[in-house]
Computed example of a mutant assay.
Amino acid sequence: MLANAKAVFFDFDGVILDTEWPIYQTWLKLFQSEGQDLPIETYVQCIGSDFDTWSPEKHLEELTGKNYDWETINPDRQIEIHAALQNPIALPGVRDLFEHLFTEGTPIVVVSSSSHDWVDTWLEKLKLMPMVDLTICKGDAPRIKPAPDLYLEAVRQIKLPADQCLVIEDSLNGTKAAIEAGCQTCAVPSRLTNCLDFSIADRVLGSLKELLPPARLVSE
């Protein structure tokens, strides 16, 4: 699959770093403290997008009939999330794949519905940023995933036909966005999104390691 790609576009959350699980855990903890459950199958609706797609805030308020001080709750959640990610480690195969693409001269683009502050900071901490040609994040295009805008902007900036760009996603929202943009798609479901049907993707993998030649699997 890599052989047919002139550039590789990576989603960030859940593909490069498992940020999604600690985020979900903070929501689950909050729901349980209010006597409610938050099944993964329900929460996963917002993965790869934002709360305009589905909102845990609105969902909790609907379940309880209460209003919450989100301006206080959410900063406290962010502290918990950062504590859980204190020693970040890239997901299996990420570093090897980046190094392989970088050595081959294949552009690496990170395309995320999250902010530049979030994505760029973690890429720096993971020491991956020197290999990244471009990051396209929330605010760089009119709409985020599942709209195709972020991927269309990445295609525009990388100056390649969309069908020569391979998108790696862990979310259905992101996969839909990539398909609408005309890109090749490879889904690598995370422990949150593996309950979803990714049959719309060109290929579904268990790990990024499966994209690599055996000789490149050196860091895991």
Rank of each mutant, 00 (worst) to 15 (best):
T106S: 02
L60W: 05
H100Y: 15
T53Q: 14
T106Y: 05
P56L: 01
T53P: 00
D69I: 11
S49Y: 05
L101M: 11
L63V: 14
V119M: 11
I108D: 03
L101V: 10
T72D: 14
A90F: 03
D69M: 11
E62G: 04
D120K: 06
G93L: 08
V109A: 10
I47D: 00
Y43F: 15
F51H: 14
N67I: 12
L101Q: 03
V111G: 05
S113T: 08
V110L: 09
E104Y: 06
G65R: 08
V111P: 00
I47T: 03
G48W: 04
E71I: 08
G65K: 14
V111R: 04
D69L: 09
G48I: 01
S55N: 08
Q45F: 02
D76H: 09
N74V: 15
T103D: 12
T64K: 13
L91E: 02
V119K: 08
Q86A: 15
D117S: 15
F51I: 13
L60I: 14
T53K: 13
S113P: 04
T53L: 09
N67M: 07
F98M: 01
P107S: 13
C46P: 00
E61S: 07
W118G: 02
F102N: 06
W118F: 11
F102S: 10
S55E: 06
K66L: 09
T53V: 15
Q45L: 13
N74P: 01
Y43Q: 09
K58C: 10
S112I: 05
A90T: 04
P75C: 14
T103N: 11
W70V: 03
V44N: 00
S55D: 09
D96E: 08
D117G: 12
G65Q: 14
L85I: 12
S112Y: 06
D120R: 07
P88I: 02
Y68N: 06
G93V: 03
S49E: 00
P88V: 02
E41A: 13
A83C: 12
N87C: 07
P56E: 03
W70P: 01
A90M: 10
L91G: 00
D50I: 06
S55C: 08
H59R: 13
R95I: 07
H100L: 15
T64W: 13
R95F: 00
E80D: 15
T64Y: 11
H100M: 14
P56F: 08
N74K: 15
P92C: 04
W70F: 09
V94D: 00
A84C: 13
T42I: 13
T103M: 11
Y68P: 03
F98Y: 07
I108W: 02
S113F: 04
D50C: 04
R77N: 10
C46F: 05
Q78N: 08
V109W: 00
K58D: 11
W70A: 07
S113V: 06
I81Y: 02
L60Y: 10
S114G: 14
Y68G: 09
D96S: 09
E99I: 03
P75E: 10
V44E: 02
R77G: 01
Q45Y: 12
D69C: 09
G65D: 05
H100W: 13
P75G: 10
E57A: 12
D96C: 05
C46I: 10
D120F: 08
C46T: 12
N67G: 11
S115Q: 07
H116C: 06
W70E: 11
W54Y: 12
T103Q: 15
Y68R: 03
E80N: 10
